[in-house]
Design a protein around this nucleic acid. Structure first.
Ligand code: MN
Ligand code: MN
Ligand code: ZN
Ligand code: ZN
Lengths: 150, 150
DNA sequence: ACTCCAGTTGAGAACGGTTCTCAACAGTGT
DNA sequence: ACACTGTTGAGAACCGTTCTCAACTGGAGT
């Protein structure tokens, strides 16, 4: 439940919509799906530069995957915009502010009541939310304590 | 409780830290505090261009105010990065995806239990969160229905 | 197999938001 | 008045992102 969708399932989504799933698109998907932490577009472009994927294609494909709901945009501890391949279904990221490792969770139960109260109180028609939680992962905590100094 | 802090209270924060509260910094604060909706840095720079505030100063000051926790970064319906002057105390934004009007609320009660569960389950040391809720405000909804078409 | 064709790709140019430079300026203390 | 420190802003530089357009790809039709 925390593993991202394999490429062949993504390919099915593409086919169903009549969108070609090219070699480059697979490589870009694999880059994000294979990472256990959030990555920036620049990092993806750099990693795939030597693999026969142009940077324009990386930008275009990240945009495409985001539009299809197959990539989620988050921000790391320093406010950098990163992307992650979410697992099947709806979830939210718990992000390590140091190494950007991501653990997904489902927090909708907690937010649903809140949204109902807000809709009632404000008259807004609520259509979405954005919830990220930040922390320091166990291994980064250990590394920090090993660090002599604060 | 939903009004932003007046400039003289901000000035007190600056003084207490020994940071000059210049004319330009006041103008930039007033721009964000006076708006009832999220605004981009570019919009602030454009609005203050003729008022004797350079764009470099706008960027520097938004950075400074954010560092001091006096401005919050959010994103609008199209993913644009905007800033808002939060009211006294901790809160979260409910943002209209059409006009970017912002209503603040306190959702920490709902998130606290979730965070405790996550800390327990993952071993992360949680230090913060980012929660935004998106909707369409009553007036934009009315405008949309008045619109003939979907 | 050959052609057709709409969609995709990538090198490089263009673009535009953000940051940097540095000389002028403002404020404070002596 | 003077020195000193921090701020400001016009313009240049920077760099991440988007655009251009010719070459390419792959599927459909014949
Ligand atoms: Mn959710
Ligand atoms: Mn909160
Ligand atoms: Zn970590
Ligand atoms: Zn609205």
């Amino acid at each position: 439940m925390t593993d991202p969708q394999p490429a062949h399932e993504i390919e099915a989504v593409f086919r169903q919509k009549g969108i070609p799933f090219t070699r480059q698109r697979r490589q870009i998907w694999d880059f994000f799906a294979g990472a256990d932490r959030a990555a920036t577009i620049t990092e993806a472009a750099d990693a795939l530069r030597g693999e026969g994927v142009g940077q324009a294609t990386v930008y275009r494909t990240v945009q495409l995957l985001s539009d299809l709901g197959l990539l989620a945009r988050v921000q790391d501890g320093r406010g950098e915009i990163c992307f992650i391949a979410p697992p099947i279904g709806h979830s939210h990221p718990l992000i390590c502010g140091v190494c950007r490792r991501v653990v997904r969770f489902d927090g909708d139960g907690d937010v649903a009541e809140l949204e109902a109260r807000l809709a009632e109180a404000t008259g807004f028609a609520i259509y979405g939310h954005h919830l990220e939680i930040y922390g320091i992962c166990p291994s980064c905590r250990a590394a920090k304590e090993g660090d002599h100094g604060e």
